[in-house]
């Protein structure tokens, strides 16, 4: 029987090597390129007509736009409109990638920590730069909890700094672990269908049907959580506490 982890294997499609570094076009790259084409194409097509009475495609585009615009309005406030492009792009990239990963025999690139970590790290570095450009050195006051007595600072500042540094870790691990665990679980239970055969195999088959629905929900939920946490980090950088 195939290993449940086989689905996460990176396979080289076009081998490329530049200066001793392997930059091959892999199945992961292919899925990411597909995600960009499908996600970008969907939004571009939805926005192309701009009809007063929206058609089906335009409605999807408007729902997606309104969803993220509403999220930003709620978490950051009116100042947040500037950051709509980056948050919407991240959301669409993760959402479409997760959904493409739900298609049988495809590849889920969000189940690789390096992919999610790079996205989280970009958000982290961006927010830090934003904080420094907004507040200058005053940004360091972010690490001092309001109302704490001065003699507690030597203890509290390291804790706050570690808490701040843990943000990209938790942001990336959350998305990666959810996708990895969910897809592995699906494959393990799918293995039971064959192992138990005709006699009791229908039981895991029922379970896998329900779990596929749950996985689709999680695929959406994780894209949403990534977007909302990006909003929260931007808000922290803008307002400091």
């Amino acid at each position: 029987m195939a290993s449940p982890l086989e689905q996460f294997e990176i396979k080289t499609i076009i081998p490329i090597e530049i200066g001793g570094i392997d930059v091959s076009f892999t199945n992961s790259s292919l899925m990411m390129a597909l995600t960009v084409v499908i996600g970008g194409g969907l939004v571009a097509l939805a926005a192309s007509r701009g009809a007063m009475v929206p058609g089906r495609l335009q409605t999807i585009g408007e729902i997606l736009y309104e969803f993220i615009a509403g999220l930003i309005r709620e978490t950051i406030g009116p100042d947040g409109r500037k950051y709509f492009p980056i948050i919407f792009t991240l959301f669409m990239f993760i959402l479409v990638g997760n959904m493409l990963g739900m298609i049988p025999y495809s590849f889920t690139f969000t189940s690789h920590i390096i992919v999610t970590f790079v996205m989280a790290f970009v958000v982290f570095i961006g927010c830090t730069i934003l904080g420094f450009s907004r507040h200058g050195l005053h940004f360091f006051s972010f690490f001092i909890p309001p109302g704490a007595p001065v003699w507690m600072w030597p203890l509290l500042i390291p804790i706050e700094v570690i808490s701040y540094l843990s943000r990209p870790i938790s942001l990336s691990v959350r998305l990666f672990a959810n996708m990895l665990a969910g897809h592995t679980m699906l494959k393990v239970i799918a293995g039971f269908v064959f192992a138990l055969g005709l006699l009791a195999g229908w039981l895991p088959l029922l379970l896998i049907t329900a779990l596929t629905g749950l996985e689709i929900l999680i695929a959406f939920l994780q894209a949403y959580v990534f977007a909302i946490l990006t909003c929260l980090y931007i808000k922290d950088a803008l307002e400091l506490h």
């Binding site: 615009a69 509403g70 999680i218 939920l221 959580v225």
Partner: peptide
Amino acid sequence: AGTRGKNGAAPRSDYGPAIR
């Protein structure tokens, strides 16, 4: 004004916060 619109509402699930 930034009032709570219906479009930004999260899908309700207790699984998300637990993982978070």
